[in-house]
C-alpha cells in the first residue's frame, strides 16, 4: 500500500470513530491503534486475575458461610472478567499464552492497587467499596469506547463491578454497626486503602502521557484528575454514613468548586509500587508464575489427550 492509501484509510478510520461507529476485529485499523488496544486490554485483563489474589487470601477465613460464598462468587467474577478481556484482546491477533508470558516476565503491567496486602477481614469490605468503586469510575466510560469487543466486555464487567461495590460497602456497614473492635477494623482498612485507591486514577494530568490520542479513540473521556475528583466527591459522603474518617487532614468541602479539596498524594510511593517495589509485587508475581508453572503438566495433558482423541476419531472414520 502506498503512503497515500494508508493516509486515506487512516482518515476514514478516524472519521468512523468520530461518528461513534464501532471498530470490529476484522476491520482495517492503524497498527498503533492495534498495539495501544492490546496493551490496554491486556493490562486490564492482568489486573483482573492478579486482583483475584488479595481477596482470594480471605476465602478460607471468611467469618460466616454467607460471606464465604459471596467472596468466592466475587473472586470468580474477576476470573470471568479476565476471561472476557483476554478473549477481546485475542481478537487483535495475539494469543493468551503470549499475554501471560508478558505478565509473567514483568513486561506487562497490572493495576498497582493489588500490590498492597489484605491483612484483615475489613480489607474485603474496603476493596469492594473503594477499589471496585474506583474501577467503575475508570471503566464506565469504556462501555462506549471505539473498539467493539472491548466496549461489549466492559458493559458486562461494569454491571458486576457495581454489584461488588455494593457488597463491599455492605461489609463495611455491618462492621461499623458492630462491636467497637469491628468498627476499628473498618477504620484501619479505610486508612490503608484510601490513598492507594486515589492512586488508581494514575498520575496527575500534568504528568500523564498519551492522553490526547486516548481521548480521540475513546479509551479515555475524562482526565485522571477529573476522575479522581469524581471518586472523592462520591466517596466522602459514603464514609460519613459509615461514621468513618477519611485519613486526609486537608480534605475540605470547597463551596466555590462544588467539590472536595484534598491533600497531596504521595507520588514517590506511587512510582515505587509501579516500578515493582510495593509491599506485595514480588509475592503477587510469584503466585501467578507459580500457578502457571504448577499447571503446566495439566495443560500439556489436556492438549495431548485432545490430540489423541482426534487421532482415534480419524482412525475410526477410515
Amino acid at each position: 500500500m502506498s503512503e497515500e492509501q494508508i493516509k486515506n484509510l487512516e482518515e476514514q478510520f478516524e472519521a468512523r470513530i468520530a461518528r461513534d461507529e464501532k471498530i470490529e476485529p476484522k476491520d482495517w485499523m492503524p497498527e498503533k491503534y492495534r498495539q495501544t488496544h492490546i496493551r490496554q486490554i491486556s493490562q486490564h485483563a492482568h489486573s483482573e486475575i492478579v486482583g483475584m489474589l488479595p481477596e482470594g487470601n480471605w476465602i478460607t477465613r471468611a467469618p460466616s458461610l454467607r460471606r464465604k460464598v459471596a467472596l468466592l462468587a466475587k473472586v470468580q467474577d474477576e476470573a470471568g472478567h479476565g476471561l472476557y478481556l483476554y478473549s477481546a484482546c485475542e481478537t487483535l491477533g495475539i494469543s493468551r499464552d503470549e499475554l501471560y508470558e508478558q505478565l509473567h516476565s514483568g513486561k506487562a503491567k497490572y493495576s498497582s492497587i493489588f500490590n498492597y496486602p489484605t491483612v484483615t477481614w475489613a480489607d474485603m469490605g474496603a476493596i469492594g467499596w473503594l477499589v471496585d468503586g474506583a474501577a467503575i469510575i475508570n471503566q464506565v466510560p469504556l462501555c462506549n469506547t471505539s473498539f467493539g469487543p472491548y466496549a461489549r466486555a466492559m458493559v458486562r464487567v461494569c454491571k458486576e463491578e457495581s454489584f461488588h461495590q455494593r457488597q463491599g460497602y455492605e461489609i463495611m456497614l455491618k462492621l461499623c454497626q458492630g462491636a467497637p473492635e469491628q468498627k476499628e477494623m473498618a477504620q484501619d482498612a479505610l486508612n490503608r486503602w484510601w490513598w492507594p485507591s486515589l492512586m488508581m486514577f494514575g498520575p496527575t494530568d500534568a504528568e500523564s502521557t498519551h492522553t490526547e490520542q486516548s481521548m480521540k479513540w475513546k479509551l479515555k473521556r475524562k482526565t485522571n484528575d477529573e476522575l479522581r475528583q469524581q471518586f472523592i466527591d462520591q466517596t466522602v459522603p459514603q464514609a460519613e454514613i459509615l461514621g468513618l474518617t477519611i485519613p486526609d487532614p486537608d480534605l475540605k468541602w470547597n463551596e466555590e468548586r462544588g467539590s472536595y479539596d484534598f491533600g497531596e498524594i504521595n507520588w514517590d510511593e506511587f512510582w515505587q509500587v509501579v516500578k515493582g517495589h510495593g509491599p506485595m509485587n514480588k509475592e503477587r508475581m510469584k503466585a501467578r508464575v507459580g500457578a502457571w508453572e504448577r499447571g503446566e503438566w495439566v495443560r500439556d495433558a489436556a492438549m495431548a489427550h485432545a490430540e489423541k482423541q482426534q487421532e482415534r476419531k480419524e482412525k475410526q472414520a477410515v
Binding site: 476465602i59 504448577r294 499447571g295
Partner: peptide
C-alpha cells in the same frame, strides 16, 4: 476454596 486464583488455567479455576 483454597485453590481459587491458583488453578492451572482460568477455566479450571472457575
Amino acid at each position: 476454596g483454597e485453590l481459587c486464583g491458583h488453578g492451572p488455567n482460568l477455566e479450571t479455576d472457575i
